[in-house]
Design a protein around this nucleic acid. Structure first.
Lengths: 118, 118
DNA sequence: TTGACATATTCCCATATGGGTATATGTTCT
DNA sequence: AGAACATATACCCATATGGGAATATGTCAA
């Protein structure tokens, strides 16, 4: 097997930074493809392709507006990511970092023992 | 260019579900590779490879313990993900979903107009 | 209808992936 | 030293990627 498709889920879709930038722009409101092309400074086909991925995982919705297509955010699909990463929120807090330091110190002490011949 | 390497950042590293499962296990505390192999039900080489990716993006740290290698979580690298996704937290709230419904309704109304000939 | 505009799709390509299997490296025990 | 154990690496392979360029599809205007 190879790497999972980008359209597998939000985790994979959002791993690509340009797609995150697109979502960041859409958070402010609807945008046409051309708007996004200009704002992102990317080629139009690539923007369309990124939007397709985002559509396929349900991160954006489309609306036809004349000859334009208005894209808008659908944040619900980001909730699984939020829920998952939330469980680690405490792990970058001071208390946990202190534990890390203790473990590091123990490790160093053991290394020293080896050097000193125990 | 191809897809960004899995070792590019936490976003890419964590897109793979098995790597997330590894982190989920490490949240409870240090684990040896063999522990992880058993708990995950994966082949040892694949686990080592996943751990390597996690190491390269700094999501885990290693400690030598005799012939074993104890891996432990380093949650700090998950903070960027948390920070990014936090900006969307409101987007799956009721108020925003209500707005979505309004937009959908407007869209449908317009479609109907087309159908009725307007 | 024809043409301009907006967006999507197709094709080609270099690249990294993740699994499987075999093997290398390193450590402990006898 | 040699065996057993723990972990990492190397190799092969099918697969999807994202960019670039060209082109298809769809819509409005004259």
């Amino acid at each position: 097997m190879a790497r999972a498709a980008t359209t597998t889920d939000a985790f994979n879709a959002v791993a690509e930074p340009r797609r995150r930038r697109i979502l960041d722009l859409l958070v402010a409101g609807e945008r046409s493809v051309n708007d996004l092309v200009t704002l992102l400074g990317l080629a139009q086909p690539q923007v369309s392709k990124h939007l397709r991925v985002l559509r396929e995982v349900g991160l954006v919705d489309v609306r036809d507006e004349g000859r334009q297509r208005m894209y808008r955010l659908n944040g619900r699909q980001l909730k699984p990511i939020h829920d998952w990463v939330r469980n680690y929120e405490q792990s970058w807090n001071e208390r946990f970092e202190a534990l890390d330091r203790v473990l590091d110190e123990l490790q160093e002490r053991k290394d020293d023992d080896h050097g000193n011949g125990k």
